[in-house]
Each structure stands twice: as structure tokens, then as C-alpha cells.
Nucleic acid binder design. Structure first.
Length: 328
DNA sequence: GCCAACGTTGGC
DNA sequence: GCCAACGTTGGC
């Protein structure tokens, strides 16, 4: 039944302009800071479920300029961590073709000459990847250390697709255009949900474009609000309505995110897969092993490595921001 | 609780 | 559009 859904665009009112893929972007100061910050810290992310069950409608603002319902535009782009030079660690060999490649072994290794990859990260490795199993898998996440952020990868479909009369399209540009924290609703998969429950304000996440021409990581966002009840599950009109979800005992939750940066070039799935070969930095990356997971974990090592793939130079010279430029 | 059938995801 | 992977359901 309810398959792992993705971000659903609230098209009810303003059917978001089918902003298709664009190109351009830079990394904003904020993100830069975050990246450096996260790169410097380390902690096994163990989280606690604590959390506020806040209706989706309850949108909060994290820093000024936020209006109810929409989003917040942030970002002034700037290059990522200086040390994060572009290094693509070309390891040819497309790892698996069909989606959920039953990926490789275990043993995370470093990313070769990638300066960033030389750092030893242990990050979230302490968390076991939740495997598909009963509905109530890992119901209660463990404790989380509040000092450092955890990293995630969340999928959304950038191309229009109508479900129950509503376009569920949601791209990095849509998020960028939002003026208020965006509730990432529609997740209807237990493993993904459990991952969601592990999130905390301050955690960072990759925005992944899926089910599109060039799937891959399009940018970065930040979790700005603890998880709360996903109200869309109770709305019969909503694409992701779940008749089995009881309001008294909500099954699904969401987190609110804010745009942080859009990569100049999308980091293609293919590239991620190239680095997921045995011995590759991404060999254990959850999303590459469980491709159908709409919300997955990213270890710090993976995070650092992936952000290092961003073309820093290009980003650095591109100071323009926010304007939606036509891609291609 | 096992497991086959079925349905969905999502890369290609 | 195809189809592998895999989550969910439901019979037993």
C-alpha cells in the first residue's frame, strides 16, 4: 500500500509554476558555514524521538523573512569549504544499473585524493541501517546527541506528476522559492519515517531529484523544525491520504526544511554510483542500497565527500542567486 | 510467523 | 515503457 512517498507539493492553491530544472546557484554563506561546521564536528548520531507533534499548518520561521505558508529564501551563495575542492574520484564502472542495486559490501574507505575524504569520519555509522521489515520497525529511535547535526538525503520529484488530481512535483527550485519552512510531507514508508523521526533541527539534508531525466542531488537544505505529525495523512483529498492513519495515533510525520543551496550542477546518481563500488566512499550509502527509500541517512563521511564533488570554482564566481535561470 | 502474490518505485 | 527491487498484504 502506501509506498514510500516523497515530498508532495501543496498545489492546492497556487499550483506552483512548473519550474523545471534550472541551473546555477552557488553555495551560500550559511551553508558554507554549516558544511565547515559539520565537517569539523563528529558525533555518532543517535537521536531521540522527542518531539513535538505539530500540525503541518504550523509553520515556523527560523529567521526572519518568513511568511505563513510559503517559504524562506535564504542563501547567498558562496563556495563550500575551501578544502573541499572538486574531486570526482573517477572510478569507472557504473555500479548497478537497475535501481535498487543490491550494493556492495561494507567497509567504508576513503575517497582517494579528495582532501576532504582524508578526514576520518565516523559519523552516523553507528546507526544501523534500518532494513525493511515490519511496520513498526525501530519504533523508538535512540538518543541523539544534540551537539552536531546529522545528515540525510530526501527525495522529491522535480517533474510534474499528477496524483489524485494534484501535482506532486517539487524541485529544489520550488524549495528555494518557498518563503517559509517547507513541511516535507507524504512520506509513507516506515523506514523512511523512522529516519525522519531521527531528525533534529539543525540537521542537514541533500535534496535529491528522483524519477526524472537526470536523477541526483540537486542541493542542500536544513531541517529547521523537529518532526511533527503529517496532517496530509488525514486529508482524503490529499494525494498521500492514508485511511489507516488514525489521528489519535498518528503514523506519519514530517519535518520542516529550508533551502540552503542549489548545486551548480546536479550531482548525478551515476556519479554517486561510481563512488559506490566496493571500497568507494559511498559503498554503503543507504540510498544507493535501498534506492526506494525516500528518506535515507547520509554519514558524515559521505556528506563531506559528496559536497566535495560540487564544483567550487564555478560556484564561487557565481554570485547571483535566487533568480531562476533557465537551464539548458 | 511464513511466504506468495501483488503493487509501487524509480532507474534506465 | 520496461522491469528489477522490494514493501505490503493477506491466506494459511
Amino acid at each position: 500500500m502506501a509506498p514510500p512517498k516523497r515530498k508532495v507539493n501543496a498545489v492546492e492553491d497556487a499550483a506552483a509554476p512548473p519550474a523545471k530544472r534550472r541551473r546555477r546557484s552557488t553555495l551560500n554563506e550559511n551553508s558554507k558555514k554549516v558544511i565547515e561546521q559539520t565537517a569539523a564536528s563528529s558525533r555518532p548520531s543517535r537521536i531521540s524521538l522527542a518531539a513535538a507533534n505539530t500540525p503541518r499548518s504550523l509553520r515556523s520561521s527560523t529567521d526572519g523573512a518568513i511568511t505563513p505558508t510559503s517559504t524562506t529564501k535564504k542563501g547567498t551563495k558562496t563556495p563550500i569549504n575551501g578544502s573541499a575542492t572538486k574531486s570526482t574520484t573517477k572510478i569507472s564502472s557504473a555500479k548497478g544499473r537497475k535501481k535498487g542495486k543490491k550494493a556492495v559490501k561494507a567497509t567504508s574507505s576513503q575517497g582517494d585524493e579528495n582532501p576532504v575524504a582524508n578526514v576520518r569520519y565516523q559519523a552516523n555509522l553507528s546507526i544501523d541501517v534500518p532494513t525493511q521489515s515490519g511496520p513498526e520497525v525501530a519504533e523508538e529511535p535512540e538518543e541523539k546527541h544534540p551537539e552536531a547535526p546529522s545528515y540525510w538525503l530526501m527525495k522529491a520529484e522535480p517533474d510534474s506528476r499528477v496524483e489524485k488530481g494534484k501535482d506532486i512535483k517539487f524541485s529544489i527550485d520550488d524549495l528555494k522559492a518557498a518563503t517559509a519552512p517547507e513541511g516535507w510531507d507524504g512520506v509513507r514508508n516506515y523506514v523512511a519515517r523512522n529516519n525522519m523521526r531521527l531528525r533534529m533541527k539543525g540537521d542537514m539534508a541533500f535534496f535529491y531529484h528522483s524519477n526524472c531525466k537526470v536523477p541526483g542531488i540537486a542541493g542542500i537544505m536544513e531541517i529547521v523544525q523537529e518532526h511533527s505529525v503529517d496532517e496530509s495523512a488525514f486529508d482524503p483529498e490529499h494525494p498521500y491520504y492514508d485511511e489507516k492513519s488514525d489521528r489519535e495515533k498518528p503514523k506519519w510525520c514530517l519535518v520542516h526544511v529550508e533551502f540552503r543551496q542549489k548545486f551548480v550542477e546536479i550531482i548525478k546518481l551515476k556519479e554517486l554510483q561510481r563512488n559506490a563500488k566496493e571500497g568507494g566512499v559511498l559503498e554503503n550509502m543507504q540510498v544507493l542500497k535501498q534506492s526506494r527509500l525516500s528518506v535515507s541517512k547520509v554519514t558524515k563521511e559521505e556528506w563531506i565527500f559528496i559536497t566535495s564533488l560540487v564544483d567550487v570554482e564555478e560556484v564561487a564566481t557565481d554570485s547571483v542567486q535566487h533568480q531562476p535561470q533557465i537551464a539548458a
